[in-house]
Simulated scan of single mutants.
Amino acid sequence: MMSFNLMTLCTGVLLILSASLWSCATAQSDVASDCCLTTSDRHIPQRVVTSFTIQTNNGACRIPATVFLTKKGLKLCAPFPSENSWVSKLIDSILAGPVRKPSKHRGKKQRKQ
C-alpha cells in the first residue's frame, strides 16, 4: 500500500513538472513579432527616413518586406528591394549617409586669424 502511494505521488510530481516545462517552452515560442503584414508601393521621401531593416519570411513573419524607420519613429513597410527599384535607391541613399550641402562662400576667401 505504501509503495502504491509513493508511486502515485512520484507520477503526479512528474506530470506537474512536465506540464510546467511544456508551458514555459510554449510561452517562449509564442513571442509576438513586429512584422509587416502588407507592403505599400507608395514612395517614401528620403528626408523622413533614418534607417531600415529587411524582413524575411523565414522566421515569424509571413512576407518579405523592407521596413523603413522614420524620424518620428514610424515603421513603414515597403516591398522587398528586388521587387521595386525605388526601394533599392532609397536603401542606397541611406547607406551612403547624409548629403552635405556646399558652403555658401561663393568665391570669397576666408581670412586667416
Rank of each mutant, 00 (worst) to 15 (best):
Met1Ala: 11
Met1Pro: 14
Met1Gly: 15
Phe4Ile: 15
Asn5His: 04
Asn5Glu: 05
Leu6Gln: 11
Leu6Arg: 15
Met7Gln: 13
Met7Pro: 00
Met7Trp: 06
Thr8Ala: 08
Leu9Lys: 11
Leu9Gly: 10
Cys10Ser: 11
Val13Asp: 10
Leu14Asp: 13
Leu14Phe: 14
Leu14Tyr: 11
Leu17Met: 08
Leu17Ala: 10
Leu17Ile: 09
Ala19Pro: 08
Ser20Ala: 07
Leu21Asp: 06
Trp22Gln: 15
Ser23Val: 14
Cys24Arg: 06
Ala25Gly: 03
Ala27Leu: 02
Gln28Phe: 04
Asp30Val: 06
Asp30Lys: 07
Ala32Ile: 10
Ser33Pro: 06
Asp34Leu: 12
Asp34Lys: 09
Cys36Gly: 12
Thr38Asp: 13
Thr39Tyr: 01
Ser40Arg: 00
Asp41Trp: 00
Asp41Tyr: 03
Asp41Met: 00
Arg42Trp: 01
Arg42Ile: 14
Arg42Asp: 13
Arg42Pro: 00
Ile44Pro: 03
Pro45Glu: 07
Pro45Asn: 04
Gln46Ala: 08
Gln46Leu: 08
Gln46Cys: 04
Arg47Leu: 08
Arg47Thr: 11
Val48Tyr: 10
Val49Asn: 00
Val49Leu: 01
Thr50Leu: 02
Thr50Tyr: 00
Ser51Trp: 02
Ser51His: 07
Phe52Arg: 09
Phe52Ile: 05
Phe52Thr: 03
Thr53Lys: 05
Gln55Val: 15
Gln55Arg: 09
Thr56Val: 02
Asn57Lys: 07
Ala60Ser: 13
Cys61Thr: 12
Cys61Ala: 10
Arg62Gln: 11
Arg62Glu: 15
Ile63Arg: 09
Ile63Leu: 15
Ile63Cys: 13
Leu69Thr: 14
Lys72Pro: 04
Lys72His: 08
Leu74Ala: 15
Leu74Pro: 08
Lys75Asp: 09
Lys75Cys: 03
Cys77Ile: 05
Ala78Glu: 02
Pro79Phe: 01
Pro79Gly: 00
Pro81His: 00
Pro81Ser: 02
Ser82Phe: 04
Asn84Cys: 05
Asn84Asp: 11
Ser85Lys: 03
Ser85His: 09
Trp86Lys: 03
Trp86Glu: 02
Val87His: 00
Ser88Glu: 11
Lys89Glu: 09
Leu90Pro: 07
Leu90His: 00
Ser93Pro: 00
Ser93Met: 00
Ile94Asn: 02
Leu95Met: 10
Ala96Leu: 02
Gly97Cys: 07
Val99Trp: 02
Arg100Phe: 15
Arg100Gly: 04
Lys101Ile: 13
Lys101Arg: 13
Ser103Ala: 12
Ser103Cys: 02
Lys108Ile: 13
Lys109Ser: 05
Gln110His: 06
Gln110Ile: 09
Arg111Ala: 05
Arg111Thr: 05
Arg111Gly: 08
Lys112Pro: 07
Lys112Tyr: 14
Gln113His: 08
